[in-house]
Amino acid sequence: MILSVHLVELLVIVLFVAVEALLPAVLPETLPFGVRVPLTHAKHPAVTRAARRYFRRLALLAVILVAMDLATWRLPGTWAFAAEQAVVLLAGVACYLNYYTAHRQIRQVKEAEDWFAGATQVVAADTRPRRLPSLWWSAPSGIVFLAVLVAGIWRYPALPNRFPVHFAADGTPTQWADKSISSAFGILMPGLLVLALCLLVHVASRATRMDVDPEAPRSSLHLQTLQRRRWVLATWWSCAFVQVGLGLAALLLWGLLGPATGWPMWVIPLTIVTGVVAPWVVVLATTARRSTGSHAASAVPNVPSSGAGAPGSPRVVHRDDDRYWKGGALYFNRDDPAWMVPKRFGVGWTLNFAHPGAWLLLLAILLIASLPALWAYLSAR
């Protein structure tokens, strides 16, 4: 069983590296490694050189991180768990630094050679109303949550007056609680919060803006529309897997899966980890095959910007907005009314940290995330 826990941690690292390997292929040609460039410079030697070095470093990182994780298996149980968490954290930091190195290399060459010289920088927008993705996509997550809730209501009268609520990695109970509605059903709180968060993402997907490329408006809108639908769908599939994992944990707590040893102790974390990451890997792999510039341009004809095709007219390009992205990842623009924008490197959305609404949302998320701990504290009193 301990080996199964180790394998889950190793899977997290492997999936982490796989996602990082797929991300560059998902980005628009005019946004290599989060750097805004004109379409005429998308294949610049500096871009291809940075990409080549990025993948070399990523391959080396994968070998080092897997070796470090395997080395932690020889440590005692508690130390092994702490060391593996440190390796996972290190994987996140290392992957970001690898991205930022490529980002910085391209940006330095762009600024030195002034790639935007002679071009007219504009901001393009899509003003057409967008249809919200179907809420039926949330049905699997909601059905699983409700099914577990019904099972808990049915089981509650038969629960002992005192039962374990936390287990060690080997299945040994480490914390007990007196029978009450809060102690029995508090384990459902994280699942409810995940549902609420996914619903927020679903609704916000309509309000966030489209990052229209004026050099290729039709193809960029087409690809972004497909991407957003895939992102929302992946969000709900991840939510469904998380609900299954948390539901199994609730059934284990209620004694409906037998003793807390054997398969539940590794199936539960494996389901949650795989469910959170796997749908996004599928989305990235699918998008990577379709988001190359030549394919996009051939799939959807572009409508040239006004005057762009006339002889002697200025070349129209997307505004160089690199200065608003701190570290190539954090967006900070006081002049932008949007509080959520597409990520610079990755899938999904990020916050405009110069917008007050973004900080209010973060505060709300923190408050919501603290509800399970508050519930447990009040239950223990």
Rank of each mutant, 00 (worst) to 15 (best):
S238L: 05
L200D: 01
S220D: 08
V123H: 09
T174V: 14
Y156E: 00
V194G: 08
L132P: 03
R130C: 03
I187M: 15
A249Q: 02
F167W: 15
G152I: 02
L159E: 09
A250R: 00
W136Q: 13
A207K: 14
W154A: 12
W136S: 11
F185I: 05
L251Y: 02
W137L: 15
L252N: 04
R230D: 14
Y156P: 03
V203H: 05
P173S: 04
P160K: 02
A168D: 14
V123S: 14
A119K: 09
R229C: 04
W176R: 00
T127P: 07
W231P: 05
W237D: 04
Q224K: 08
W154E: 09
R229I: 02
A151G: 06
T225S: 12
L188M: 05
L149P: 09
L246M: 06
R130I: 10
P160W: 02
D178E: 14
E113V: 13
T174H: 13
L223V: 13
R128E: 15
R209Q: 15
D114G: 07
R155A: 11
L159K: 06
A119G: 07
L135T: 09
I153T: 12
F241Y: 07
Q121K: 10
D211V: 12
W236E: 01
P140L: 08
G152E: 02
L146S: 13
I143K: 09
F163P: 08
I187N: 06
G247V: 01
P133I: 04
W236R: 04
R155G: 05
L248F: 05
L193D: 00
P214K: 08
V212S: 06
L132F: 07
G118S: 03
R228I: 11
A112L: 12
K179A: 00
A250K: 00
L200Q: 05
P164S: 05
A234H: 02
A117R: 13
V148Q: 01
T174F: 07
I187T: 03
S182Y: 01
G245Q: 08
L199E: 06
T120Y: 13
W115Q: 06
I143N: 10
A151E: 07
L188N: 00
V150W: 08
S220T: 04
P129R: 03
L197F: 14
Q243L: 10
P140N: 03
D213K: 06
A177Q: 03
L195I: 13
R162M: 14
W176S: 02
R209V: 15
V144P: 09
W154I: 11
L252I: 10
S238I: 05
G245I: 08
K179S: 03
A125G: 09
A169H: 14
V123L: 15
S180Q: 09
A196G: 15
I153K: 03
R155Y: 03
W237H: 11
T208G: 12
L199H: 10
W237P: 07
K179E: 01
N161R: 14
P129G: 08
A184H: 01
L223F: 04
A119R: 15
L252E: 04
L233Q: 03
W136T: 07
A147C: 13
G186S: 03
R130S: 10
R128A: 12
M189K: 04
S183I: 01
L248E: 00
L192I: 11
F163Y: 08
L246Y: 02
C239L: 14
A240W: 01
W236P: 01
A139D: 05
A119E: 09
P164L: 04
R230Y: 12
S141N: 06
P214F: 02
L223M: 09
